[in-house]
């Protein structure tokens, strides 16, 4: 019992630390690594509760595949530097977000701690946990009998997801947006043109000539890569 308590406290601390790291660190690589910590902590907690198979796939799928995928994308896109998120452009977004988070936490705790009986009600009788043999056998038995349709549908879902990912990341030469409808291009284009104009102004300021930036210049400039 003491061992389990100790394990819980340690893994819980790692989980919380990792979670806070994901939210608070500025470098996406650090965020991803913090996420790994949380995932590991959760895996340990699974072991602590006897869900060995789930702990294994938690490590293999999450830490091994998903987080690696994240890191892959980060490296691929070259965004592995610190992003400046100090200035919040949306008024009241941060306080409201924190308030909402606290409200969710508070309400959940109230529900958990004050409920005289369990929130989920009575025991379901799918299959008991404490059977002889490894738990993966019992899980497989349920998955391939009672949940066989759901299982097959998730298989289809995975296939569709793979196809979708391939289609999405295919390179195309078409402009991203309809330039007839948005002649100014995307937000990025507008911002870039404004920056260019500003830079141009600074250059021209010496010659005391105010140049009119050619905003109509090349709307496709930012649309292509």
């Amino acid at each position: 019992m003491r061992v389990e308590m100790f394990t819980f406290l340690l893994a819980g601390a790692i989980c919380l630390g990792g979670a806070l790291g994901v939210v608070l660190l500025k470098n996406p690589v650090h965020n991803a690594l913090s996420l790994v910590a949380t995932l590991f902590g959760v895996a340990v907690l699974f072991v602590n509760q006897g869900a060995y198979f789930l702990a294994a796939i938690q490590v293999i799928v999450y830490a091994g595949a998903i987080v690696i995928l994240f890191l892959f994308v980060i490296m691929l896109l070259g965004v592995d530097r610190e992003t400046d998120e100090g200035r919040e452009p949306l008024v009241a977004q941060r306080p409201l977000a924190v308030a909402t988070g606290l409200a969710i936490l508070g309400l959940s705790l109230v529900a958990l701690l004050s409920a005289g009986q369990r929130a989920t009600g009575d025991k379901a009788d799918l299959a008991p946990l404490n059977q002889p043999g490894p738990d993966i056998n019992h899980l497989a038995e349920v998955l391939f009998t009672r949940y066989v349709y759901a299982f097959e549908i998730t298989a289809v879902l995975l296939t569709v997801a793979v196809v979708g990912a391939v289609v999405l990341s295919k390179r195309t030469n078409e402009p991203l947006i309809d330039l007839d409808e948005f002649p100014e291009g995307t937000v990025v284009d507008v911002r870039r043109r404004a920056d260019d104009a500003k830079a141009q102004d600074e250059v021209d300021a010496d010659a005391e000539v105010v140049a009119v930036p050619d905003t109509e210049g090349d709307p496709q400039e930012g649309g292509d890569d």
Partner: peptide
């Protein structure tokens, strides 16, 4: 999120 909070608050008051 605010909607979720509202729902949660409703459920909690019902339990209470």
């Amino acid at each position: 999120a605010i909607g979720a909070v509202a729902l949660l608050a409703y459920v909690v008051t019902r339990i209470g």
